[in-house]
Design a protein around this nucleic acid. Structure first.
Length: 403
DNA sequence: CGAGATTCATGTGAAGTATACCTTTAGGCTTAA
DNA sequence: AAGCCTAAAGGTATACTTCACATGAATCTCGTA
């Protein structure tokens, strides 16, 4: 495309009628004015957290529910209200929301507490300090003025799985030592049996109140989609049956509303890119593939180099021969390619862990099996459709600067 | 033929090491009185 | 003499390695029918 062509392309782009009137409304970070089909949950959570406004200590709260059941949304909606009101009335209420899954931010005890200190407006070193020291500064900031902290830990199960429940024990215990401030914990988890794995002391104090968010059914998802698309799209942008199909796809799993919204948004983007004025059903299938692809590509590009190299080894093995792949095979391949990339080869012990991590990410499926006389290993398969597989390989080659 | 022992290839936990970063401390230099 | 800077010392978290033991079904062994 020449200079002129590019300019006119952008001009075309600007003058093009968009399907969207407010695309934001379909983004998963969007918090709508009203949340449908969660009335009773909202009421309950609000009831539990309301005492914060009088600076009384509410019960700690634990929320379960599968992905896309509106847990995070509900909590954010409520805390937004709380915090507005608190500001209006000059109530010293500080709300901290942390997603424990975020690598390098809140995925270890040290990092979580350090991040809390930062949220409270103070600098702290990323490493090097004793954990006690970090706790101490957290403590000091907390108690430096009278205030109430509402601490929301999203995907808390991930954190505990990795680092144990000591953090939670420390956090629930903090109140005993604080003179001026108080801290209330809200844990969010999509693992339903998570609390059972906790130390009993932690369990009883963390889940003083428990709340389960049930999945949405297809009708409810349709409702949500309609409501949001009213805001997001211009009139007449959606074709016949589009919403129904998105809802059906999402309900097929377990009523994941986030997925339904994403499906709708991406389908519309596809339609828009094709210069169409309306979204129709075929776009949804396209969107489904695209979402899956983007998700995978996104996760792998954000992996550390060593994980990428491991994954690359797995994929090349998988493409070469379809039969089952074992850890030993992977390590052989990995050992060969890692110097080409300029990586110091890690030991098999570590690769074993990395393979387990990739399994957790859902990119591959690694099952520990016993081959009897021939020992024990992980049997690995790649879960991804072949089309994406090639794309993945390409992305990895780029990321690793492999030819 | 079948129960029990053996075996293999790697899983897995614990302890040790390297690296990167932190604070404290002590020495040396500068500066101002 | 006081103040400031720098480098060494001593500490920590994290990612990785090393060591050693655990696993568990296919396979082997050997007593028995």
């Amino acid at each position: 495309m020449g200079e002129k062509g590019l300019t006119s392309f952008f001009e075309d782009f600007l003058s093009k009628e968009s399907l969207f009137s407010n695309k934001q409304a379909l983004q998963s970070s969007f918090i709508p004015e009203t949340i449908s089909h969660r009335d009773s949950e909202i009421k309950q959570v609000a009831n539990i957290l309301a005492p914060t406004l009088k600076l009384e200590k509410p019960s700690n709260l634990f929320i379960y529910g599968k992905t896309g059941t509106g847990k995070t949304l509900t909590i954010k909606h409520i805390t937004q209200n709380l915090s507005n009101l608190a500001k209006e009335r000059n109530i010293p209420l500080k709300i901290i929301y942390l997603n424990c899954k975020l690598k390098k931010i809140a995925d270890t005890e040290y990092r979580l507490i350090a991040q809390l200190v930062r949220e409270l407006g103070s600098e702290i070193a990323a490493t090097g300090l004793p954990t006690d020291e970090v706790y101490k500064s957290f403590f000091n900031i907390l108690d430096s003025q009278k205030q109430h902290i509402l601490l929301i830990l999203d995907e808390i199960d991930q954190l505990v799985k990795k680092t144990g429940d000591e953090i939670l024990y420390n956090l629930v215990r903090v109140n005993e030592d604080l003179k001026q401030s108080q801290i209330t914990l809200v844990g969010i988890s999509n693992d339903l049996i998570f609390v059972d794995t906790l130390d009993p002391r932690v369990r009883s104090s963390l889940s003083e109140e428990e709340l389960v968010f049930p999945p949405y059914n297809a009708i409810q998802i349709q409702d949500i989609l309609r409501q949001r698309s009213k805001e997001a799209f211009k009139e007449g942008s959606l074709g016949e049956g589009v919403i129904e199909k998105c809802a059906a796809y999402a309900a097929r799993e377990h009523g994941d509303a986030r997925r339904a919204l994403e499906l709708l948004r991406v389908a519309a983007e596809v339609a828009e890119r094709n210069n169409l004025k309306t979204v129709n059903i075929t776009h949804i299938d396209e969107a489904e593939d695209k979402i899956e692809k983007d998700r995978i590509i996104d996760t792998i590009t954000h992996q550390p180099k060593q994980s990428q190299a491991t994954l690359y080894s797995i994929i090349s093995l998988f493409l070469k021969r379809k039969e089952s792949i074992f850890t030993g095979d992977i390590y052989e391949v990995y050992k060969n390619i890692s110097p080409q990339i300029g990586l110091r080869p890690l030991t098999q012990r570590r690769i074993s862990d990395i393979v387990a991590e990739l399994d957790m990410l859902g990119i591959i499926n690694a099952k520990v099996i016993s081959k009897g006389r021939h020992g024990r290993t992980r049997e690995i398969s790649v879960l991804v459709p072949p089309v994406i597989l090639n794309k993945m390989k390409k992305v990895l080659e780029e990321g690793l600067a492999l030819s």
